[in-house]
Design a binder for these strands. Structure first.
Length: 554
DNA sequence: GTAGGGTTAG
């Protein structure tokens, strides 16, 4: 008995056990009447959680009558880790009704679950619970709160938590700096970075990743290079996370040479780093190179995952060339990745965008599991091929099967209406979206509505729709209307729309080109000339669309 | 004999 017992303790002290091994250990514990000891129960529950066996984890929890904080935390964490936030929060509520009080780690876990579940209201309530429990100044809770608020773009709340702490530790500094970056305030993140250094806190790789990830605009390339320089000086550039963050930052800044430079310096680029480079290449339109690196990665025997496959398929779809996409389809089949919903949805999207919607349908029909995302891909695919009635049938199926339509579902349906010119259906689905499904219309929905109404000649209705927006309309929405005015030759409204556009986005020369097309149609050559000068002053050498304007007239 | 959880990259 005794040697076996010490062996048990040794096994339990490991951080990982396979599922069969876990079951054996569990059986051993039951046989020896140890299962009601929360220590043993907690260890086994964690092993079940690591192996994603929530069912066994929950049974074990239910059968254990003596529940410690450790056991409660572990079971809540198990659910949150599998994105089953409702169950995690239900268990938390249940815990509050017992005499076991949640500790800082319970709250940290629940706070994170609220953010990942996009539930700001609940987050505020749990934050209240943190304060009431006397953990308002606890560093573990605070850093979890700062991150959670930042992820929900509630940067004011996040900074209130941060500045409420007299002596923030490194994790908290990092969380706040990253939070600013995440919410688009990269400059505040940098300010915080210098503040922490002046207080004698040494940044680590987390700090750098947070700062780098906040840089999302080509105009910030100089700042990015500066931070890169700091990383080199402090030898953070060898860290895999920092390296990947740099690669993707340079990609976002359209500086693929530098991205590649960082990549080559890394001695052991991992899956994420390869993905950062490949995704960066495909997003910048260099599909050939993206696929080249994908093949290269495979030749080096590197593991590939669904996220990367989806990204490469998106590149193939954008290029609208079927070859590479179907090559990857073969890869997917060979590696048994077709059961991944993300992969199949990307395949449907790729086939549709390459013009082979029937192949997309075939992938869709062969999927063992579907979700809202896969339906969205299929609805969009049918929509862009003008098969609006089939797209709406799919939508009915979504509702029948009990899936919850989201913003993208309606975006795809509106797109279908656009391609088929279904004004009445478009109006109807647009109002159903807000009234029946309580989804707030986003820029993309307005763009589709404006295009739909505008192309049907309902220019005034489209214009009124834009004016009815609570917030100033995005330039993409005005641009859509300007195109429609252009199409219908309505120069009167076009000038009004152009005014709105030029106030908000004076640098966008494409809109000036559109307007100049209209002027050219009216043979107002002086106005055309003026706009052309504007465009040239903005430093744009060549603009597609200008070419058809008879140069001889100017 | 008695646990470890808060901030990173695509």
């Amino acid at each position: 008995m005794l040697p076996q017992f010490s062996k048990l303790l040794f096994e339990l002290s490991k951080i990982h056990q396979t599922l069969p091994r876990t079951k054996k250990l569990h059986a051993f514990i039951i046989r020896n009447h140890l299962s009601d000891d929360p220590f043993y129960a907690t260890r086994i529950l964690r092993f079940y959680a690591i192996n994603s066996d929530l069912c066994s984890a929950r049974n074990l929890f239910d059968e254990t009558s003596h529940r410690s904080v450790y056991l409660w935390n572990s079971v809540i964490r198990a659910y949150a880790g599998e994105y089953q936030f409702d169950d995690a929060l239900l268990l938390f509520a249940k815990m509050l009704r017992t005499e076991i009080k949640p500790d800082s780690f319970t709250f940290a876990c629940v706070v994170r679950a609220c953010a990942e579940n996009f539930d700001p209201d609940r987050l505020r309530v749990v934050h209240g619970g943190v304060v009431v429990s006397g953990l308002g100044f606890d560093s573990v809770c605070s850093s979890a709160l700062v991150t959670a608020y930042s992820k929900l773009c509630m940067v004011d709340e996040a900074s209130r938590v941060f500045y409420g702490m007299a002596e923030p530790d490194l994790v908290l500094w990092n969380a706040m700096a990253a939070g600013y970056g995440y919410c688009g305030f990269w400059d505040k993140g940098l300010q915080l970075f210098s503040a922490m250094r002046s207080m004698g806190e040494h940044p680590d790789s987390y700090t750098m990743v947070g700062l780098i990830s906040g840089l999302a605009d080509p105009g910030l390339l100089g700042i990015g290079k500066g931070i890169h320089g700091f990383c080199l000086k402090s030898s953070f550039d060898c860290n895999a996370h920092v390296g990947s963050a740099l690669v993707s930052m340079y990609s976002r800044c359209h500086c693929l040479n530098s991205a590649y430079g960082v990549f080559t310096v890394l001695s052991q680029p991992d899956l994420v780093t390869w993905s950062a480079l490949i995704t960066g290449l495909s997003k910048s339109g260099d599909y050939e190179k993206a696929l080249l690196f994908f093949r290269k990665m495979n030749m080096e025997g590197k593991r590939v995952d669904p996220i990367l496959i989806a990204s490469v398929l998106a590149a193939s779809g954008q290029s609208a060339i079927l070859g590479p996409g179907s090559e990857i389809h073969g890869y997917v089949l060979r590696h048994g990745l077709e059961s991944e919903v993300m992969v199949s949805s990307a395949l449907i999207d790729m086939y549709s965008k390459c013009g082979f919607v029937n192949l997309g349908v075939r992938v869709f029909e062969s999927m063992p599991n579907r979700n809202t995302v896969s339906y969205n891909s299929m609805i969009l695919g049918l929509g862009i091929h003008g098969l609006a009635s089939q797209a709406f049938e799919m939508f009915e199926e979504v509702l029948e099967k009990g899936f919850k339509p989201d913003e993208s579902t309606f975006s795809a349906l509106l797109c279908a209406c656009c391609h088929a010119g279904l004004v009445k259906d478009g109006r109807e689905i647009f109002s159903r979206m807000t009234e029946e499904f309580h989804i707030q219309a986003r820029t993309e929905h307005y763009v589709h509505m404006v295009k739909l109404l505008g192309m049907a000649g309902e220019l005034q209705e489209a214009y009124d729709l834009i004016l009815s927006l609570q917030q100033p309309a995005d330039s993409g929405i005005w641009g859509a209307l300007l195109s429609c005015c252009n199409f219908h030759g309505n120069s009167e409204l076009a000038e009004i729309v152009a005014q709105h556009l030029f106030e908000n986005k004076p640098e966008k020369s494409a809109y000036r080109v559109m307007l100049s097309n209209i002027y050219a149609g009216d043979e107002r050559w002086d106005d055309v000339k003026k706009l052309r000068n504007d465009i040239q002053e903005a430093g744009i050498k060549k603009m597609p669309g200008l070419s058809w304007i008879g140069v001889g007239h100017i």
